[in-house]
Amino acid sequence: MDSLPASNTQVGYTGLVNKACKCGLTEGTVINFYLDNALYGVPVERTVEYEAPYFKPDRAEDYCVAWGIFENEIISREN
């Protein structure tokens, strides 16, 4: 299993997926380690793993699909 360790800073899902895509990683795991000090100011090391397949989210396309479904539902209720 290939792995692409991310930096030790907190990087969101999109940042990790972009790193995986740029490296040509099509299978395996992207692992992100970061310190989480959200509770009580005591840092706790967290590990987040993302499993392949990776894809780059397209929010605009997702909205188009969702609104198409909503519009069809409204039309079917009116008929």
Rank of each mutant, 00 (worst) to 15 (best):
M1T: 09
D2L: 12
S3W: 02
S3E: 01
A6D: 15
A6T: 09
S7D: 15
S7M: 13
N8K: 13
N8C: 13
T9S: 15
G12F: 13
Y13Q: 02
T14F: 03
G15M: 09
L16Y: 02
V17I: 00
V17N: 06
V17Y: 02
N18K: 15
N18T: 14
A20D: 02
A20N: 00
A20H: 03
C21N: 09
K22R: 08
C23R: 14
L25D: 01
L25G: 11
T26Q: 13
T26A: 11
E27A: 10
E27L: 01
V30W: 04
V30Q: 03
V30G: 05
I31T: 13
I31W: 05
N32G: 02
F33N: 15
Y34F: 01
Y34S: 05
L35C: 11
D36M: 03
N37S: 15
A38S: 10
L39D: 03
Y40K: 08
V42P: 06
V42E: 01
V42A: 03
V42R: 12
V42T: 04
P43I: 03
V44H: 04
E45D: 01
E45H: 08
R46M: 14
R46S: 10
R46F: 05
R46T: 07
R46N: 12
T47S: 11
T47M: 09
T47K: 10
V48P: 04
V48E: 09
Y50K: 10
Y50D: 07
Y50W: 12
E51W: 13
A52N: 12
Y54V: 00
F55S: 04
F55G: 06
F55K: 03
F55E: 04
K56A: 08
P57S: 07
D58K: 00
D58N: 06
R59V: 14
A60E: 01
E61G: 00
E61R: 04
D62A: 15
C64D: 00
C64F: 01
V65Q: 00
V65N: 02
W67M: 12
W67A: 11
I69F: 01
I69V: 04
N72W: 04
N72A: 10
N72Y: 07
N72S: 13
S76P: 08
S76L: 02
S76Y: 01
R77C: 15
E78Q: 05
N79S: 06
N79H: 04
N79V: 03
